[in-house]
Design a protein around this nucleic acid. Structure first.
Length: 414
RNA sequence: GCGGGCGUAGCUCAGCUGGUUAGAGCGCCAGAUUGUGGAUCUGGAGGUCGGGGGUUCAAGACCCCUCGCUCGCCCCA
């Protein structure tokens, strides 16, 4: 608690940062709505078991990145590191599967205990969608399309690349996994320490290794595509065709993998080179086995999550604060009439700042600093004649306007 | 968890090989201007030099420890 600093990796959202954040969320919410996604807010903490079951005991998130604690009654609680688990839990505990297909949009804070760096925080925020209950490739296509549409609406789509891959169905993956493990075991001596660990827990992850020695070994590894059965090939082809039909550009990346067993078929990431070491801005895939694995019904799902901070940093133009008009009382006697006038104008839908203190010069400075479009001066002269002096603060033009006509006159400052 | 860089005013930074009362720009407050903002001028407030210890006649500067920020590794949004 030294010197009231924020907890490492946390940030206050204020000013421009808050506006960027809000721009991302509001754009995403509106766009997701066009695709029929309904907003859901699940608790920001769950029983630790919820994440252990969905993310797997060996994943990095579970082994070293969770914010977990025992609450006052001794329950093991974890601050959510991602939101798919929470949504899946909500589907199960709320018996929502009967209403499938379910289409959810969410936005909110997530927590991971990591070393902060550019685009990576301990409390960060994500938007995301989940489409649950549709096994057909149309679901994957629409989910990705919604994501691309959001990036486009934010003006950042052009700075990203959509990378896509297939993990195939369970049979295909099991078959491939077997040959891959055989191959990697044969080359075990050349593998990095990390990858040797992955070999047992999560062999597909080795394909994604950045270690140079690993890469040369991986380059000679059997190809996933050779082990996809017909159904898996058809599924992937349908997804790719759908994206092409919609004009969504993508690049196939055979190294893009998700290690956990319940992931299948589509895996994708929108990546960028503009965020330092962090490249992923939006990532997701299909998780048909997840809900069953958690103890729920057999129901498929596909979704993605995107980092709000990362998207916010990509916005080239920071959203501007709303520009108000300023009601400026001239002299103490005018303060109450000015207060009432400000309130009237707000009721009529205008954003209004009131000059609170100081002489006229001070209040004008304050109006200017608030980036007001116009100053509405009310003093004794004006009160006597039932008018207001309206000064356009951009042009300096000034006019007297009868109070009865004020609202219409101000329409252009909305 | 592991590396690199950096901590001086609200912000961005200067402070030479250790040397007197620690500076600038921007911002903030006040005045020039008691019915007119932006521009200009004048004045003012604001600093445990991140913290602790050490070396020295003398430390913002050098050494050690520590905390924090930041960038990267791992991994991820």
């Amino acid at each position: 608690m030294a010197n009231l600093q924020p907890v490492r990796g946390t940030h206050d959202l204020v000013g421009e940062e808050m506006r960027r954040h809000r721009q991302v969320v509001e754009t995403a919410r509106a766009t997701a709505g066009l695709y029929g996604f309904q907003e859901i807010a699940t608790p920001i903490f769950e029983f630790t078991e919820v994440f252990k079951r969905t993310l797997g005991d060996t994943s990095d998130i579970v082994t070293k990145e969770m914010y977990s604690f025992a609450d006052n009654s001794g329950e093991n609680i974890t601050l959510r590191p991602e939101n798919t688990a929470g949504v899946a839990r909500a589907v199960i505990s709320g018996g929502l599967a009967q209403h499938a297909p379910l289409k959810f949009f969410y936005a909110g804070p997530m927590f991971r205990y990591e070393r902060p760096q550019k685009g990576r925080y301990r409390q960060f925020h994500q938007i995301g969608v989940e489409l649950i209950g549709v096994a057909e490739p149309l679901a994957d296509i629409e989910t990705i399309a919604a994501g691309a549409r959001i990036l486009d609406a934010l003006g950042v789509l052009g700075r990203t690349t959509l990378e896509i891959n297939t993990l195939g169905d369970g049979d295909s993956r099991a078959a491939y996994r077997a040959v891959l493990v055989d191959y990697l075991r044969g080359n075990q001596a050349g593998l990095s320490e990390d990858s040797r660990k992955r070999l047992d827990r999560n062999p597909l992850r080795v394909l994604d290794s950045k270690d140079e020695g690993d890469r040369t070994i991986v380059a000679g590894a059997p190809l996933f595509t050779d082990h996809l059965n017909q159904g898996s090939q058809d599924f992937f082809a349908a997804v790719c065709d759908g994206l092409s039909l919609l004009g969504i550009a993508y690049v196939r990346n055979p190294r893009l993998v998700r290690g956990l067993d319940y992931y299948c078929h589509t895996a994708f990431e929108f990546t960028t080179g503009d965020l330092g070491a962090q490249s992923a801005v939006m990532a997701g895939g299909r998780y048909d086995g997840l809900i069953a694995q958690m103890g729920g019904p057999e129901i498929p799902g596909v979704g993605w999550a995107a980092g709000i901070e990362r998207l916010g940093m990509l916005l080239t133009e920071a959203p501007q604060a709303l520009r108000p008009v300023a009601v400026v009382p001239v002299g103490v006697a005018a303060e109450q009439p000015a207060l009432s006038l400000a309130e009237d104008l707000r009721r009529a839908g205008l954003a209004v700042e009131l000059g609170y203190r100081g002489n006229l010069s001070k209040r004008m400075k304050a109006a200017n600093k608030a980036k007001a479009r116009a100053a509405i001066l009310i003093g004794e002269d004006e009160l006597k004649r039932a008018v207001a002096t309206v000064r356009d603060l951009d042009t300096g033009e000034q006019a007297e306007v009868p109070l009865t006509a004020l609202h219409d006159h101000l329409a252009r400052f909305r």
